[in-house]
């Protein structure tokens, strides 16, 4: 009964689009394509940090690899004048994520940090979220993967190992965010500071092309870089409002 009362008295809250009036944090990323060299250090770092399985050559050729961040390569032009462009692609943590409505069991939802979370324990493997995702950054555990000894020793204890039939994707290294929040609490701070957190990919990037931070803080590097004239979001026309802003590469021809 009190629930029904709650439903009607707070009706405007339940009808508010997106529910959160403002996010506590709004974690975001800026990827400067002008700095990116396509070295894939981020891919390796992500694999190590998040216990991504190495699926092997056969599974890879079947398009069943699990890489939460990948470097997409696009060739343009014919051979002598061929040009290569690349873009690191990872979960965009959209504020209006198409994937989130898809799940029948609420295994994916939007948390108050503005993160698009995936709850492995709850996932039943309908794969609907992956179909709805326009960026193809959700990965399915087609099999249960194992790590040969001694590789199981290097698994990150802060991150679960996923079993077969579970969807997974980039979490913005949520284990690091949690840890930083705990430290901040220990230090008696209410908010995280710029630079407290770095996801594995940003940490590993040799050219500092990946910058991570809180977009709610106007002084943060992310917020300032995001308003750069070169900034754009991928597949903007789909109106997913991603959290990742890419900075366009400056070509010689265009200068």
């Amino acid at each position: 009964m009190s629930l029904i009362k709650d439903l009607f008295t707070n009706w405007s809250v339940w009808r508010r689009p997106g529910y959160f009036e403002s996010f506590d944090y709004s974690w975001g990323m800026v990827i400067d394509l002008d700095r990116c060299t396509g070295c894939e250090a981020c891919v390796v770092a992500c694999t190590a940090e998040n216990n991504l399985p190495i699926v092997g050559e056969k599974r890879f050729s079947e398009n069943r690899e699990i890489k939460w961040i990948r470097i997409e390569r696009y060739w343009s032009g014919e051979y002598p004048n061929a040009k290569l462009s690349f873009i690191p692609m990872l979960c965009q943590h959209c504020d209006q994520a198409p994937c989130e409505i898809a799940c029948p069991v609420s295994a994916t939802y939007h948390n108050q940090d503005g993160l698009n979370t995936q709850i492995y324990n709850r996932c039943i493997g309908t794969r609907t979220c992956a179909v709805y995702c326009p960026y193809e950054v959700r990965f399915f555990n087609w099999f249960s993967y194992t790590w040969d000894a001694p590789l199981e020793q290097q698994l990150n204890p802060d991150v679960t190992v996923r079993e077969k039939g579970v969807m997974e994707k980039c979490t913005f290294c949520i284990q690091r965010i949690r840890e930083a929040k705990d430290h901040a609490k220990d230090d008696g701070r209410r908010r995280l500071r710029e630079g407290d957190i770095q996801p594995a990919c940003a940490q590993a990037c040799p050219t500092k092309a990946i910058v991570f931070g809180d977009r709610n803080d106007p002084d943060s590097q992310v917020a300032q870089m995001a308003s750069d004239a070169r900034g754009y979001t991928v597949l903007k026309e789909l109106n997913t409002s991603p959290s990742i802003v890419y900075l366009r590469r400056v070509d010689q021809e265009h200068v």
Binding site: R16, Y19, Q96, E100, I101, C103, S241
Partner: peptide, 25 residues
């Protein structure tokens, strides 16, 4: 309707920038 609406507000999991109690679904 109550089952859908109340189950949505008893455990709040916002999705896709939609309201917690949306009409069409």
């Amino acid at each position: 309707f109550l089952m859908a609406a109340l189950s949505a507000i008893v455990f709040i999991l916002p999705t896709s920038g939609r309201p917690i109690v949306p009409w069409p679904p």
